[in-house]
Design a binder for these strands. Structure first.
Lengths: 205, 205
DNA sequence: GTCTATACACCGATAGAC
DNA sequence: GTCTATCGGTGTATAGAC
């Protein structure tokens, strides 16, 4: 259980600020979110935010800190799935997991913009992208080789397109209509070998 | 030719400011772009920017002023194409026309964010979206009815997914790799009736 | 570690000369 | 119509008390 109080308290504070920051960034965007807003929502003073994170840019980066390990895990899982169709759809499901969380469109949009401004953030995002893109391209290549996918597909290009589809879902994200089932279907149709007319590619999440 | 000098000069100035604004917004984003930046690039004084556009929010909105008429024109063209496949791909081509212009990702991201902040902008974007989405859904419905498309497709949902794909292309936009050909292929594969194994859907831009 | 209070920089928008 | 000059509002980050 490790020493309870102080270390845990510190982590709690950090986590509270981080959660508040994610929420505020997601509704107001980066610039419009003031440190005071985050502090109020987290129930701390504005100075405390800076004590823990140094500056606002770092706070924003930390909101996305989990993405990289998550991407690694997802890539690993995909590699373990024998069927390329299942593997590709598993990647898509994992990447699109958060599309319906409120504020996702704004948060995604802000991420795109901040990447052009914050080189450290760009580095992390590029690495995450490299892993995801690699896993997807690898999966597609596997499908092409085994005849399950359209042999005229260029795996890196196809991977790029599938990733773009997922990104697009984040932008439009309407909580009323979950487009993820349609996305699965479209991805499957795009990748599938043209001569496999009938094939069941449904799979429970 | 209409009276040359003053009226034309005014329009030129406006256009110059608008072009400068689009460029600046596309690289720095909305908040980080100062009126002075736009003014400098346009070769005018900062006060002149406010004289022509009133405030920064209006300036940003005006950058997208062309989108609505463009959407109307595109929808009209699609309606005139008999073949649903050609019509759908024509819409996709038109919507994705600007993916490769430098700064497109940031501009697209900023648009998403500003829509949540500027109700007037939201109104215009919603109207543009309504037109595009309607034309696409209508086209898909036509394709389903005539047996060219997958009969299990729900036209509004499918339209939403196709629009999301296009949006996704704007986000990732890498000038090195034009994903639009892959997009055309994916859209065609997604919509196409599963029992039409062999079909030529290529068409010059 | 966390708070309060504030210094300092910055930028949108305006006023008024030309 | 366009410029120069400036003001007011705002928000990051820090300094120092507790």
């Amino acid at each position: 259980m490790t020493p309870p109080s102080d270390l845990a308290r510190r982590a709690d504070r950090r986590a509270a600020i981080l959660e508040a920051a994610a929420l505020e960034f997601a509704v107001r965007g980066y610039d419009a979110t003031r440190a005071a807003d985050v502090a109020r929502r987290a129930g701390v003073a504005s100075g405390t935010v800076f004590y823990h994170f140094g500056d606002k840019a770092t706070l924003f980066r930390e909101v996305f800190a989990d993405d990289l390990p998550r991407a690694r895990g997802l890539a690993e899982e995909a590699r373990r799935l024998d069927d390329p169709v299942n593997a590709a759809l598993h990647l898509v499901d994992g990447l699109a997991a958060d599309v319906l969380v409120p504020g996702a469109p704004v948060l995604a949009a802000e991420l795109v913009r901040r990447v052009g401004v914050d080189p450290e953030l760009a580095r992390v995002v590029a690495e995450t992208d490299r892993i995801t893109r690699g896993a997807l391209a690898e999966t597609i290549e596997r499908g092409v080789r085994t005849g399950r996918f359209d042999p005229t597909l260029d795996p890196p290009t196809a991977a790029g397109l599938v990733l773009a589809m997922v990104d697009g879902l984040y932008l439009g994200a309407d909580p009323e209509h979950d487009l993820r089932p349609a996305l699965r279907r479209a991805v499957a149709a795009y990748l599938r070998s043209p001569d496999m007319t009938e094939e069941d590619d449904d799979r429970p999440t």
